[in-house]
């Protein structure tokens, strides 16, 4: 879907903020008609201030997540 469809407007990404998406893996994949197997769900998404000590991560990432699995700045 392009940014101009359905009344949407494409904007440049916000400075000093990161876009956070929470994704949940399903314990067992569900089958949906016309879609197929679904292995996970997007729970929510939003902008959050960027952590000053770890670029590309949300602020207070150490409190938000139990483990750092990966980051652009290891």
């Amino acid at each position: 879907m392009s940014g101009q469809e359905a009344g949407l407007t494409a904007n440049p990404s916000l400075k000093l903020r990161v876009f956070v998406v929470l994704v949940r893996e399903e314990r067992q994949p569900n089958e949906f008609p016309g879609v197929g197997s679904v292995f996970g769900s997007i729970e929510k998404w939003n902008w959050v201030k960027e952590d000053p000590a770890l670029p590309h991560a949300p602020i207070d990432w150490g409190e938000r997540y139990a483990t750092k699995l990966w980051s652009r700045n290891v």
Partner: peptide
Amino acid sequence: RLDCIRVIARDCSVLETRINPYLTVLEDN
């Protein structure tokens, strides 16, 4: 699924800012 109450007064692109581990405020970007 996330065990939280969401109060949304206006639908827009928002910045989430934590007040404490339980409370988060949503600000229009």
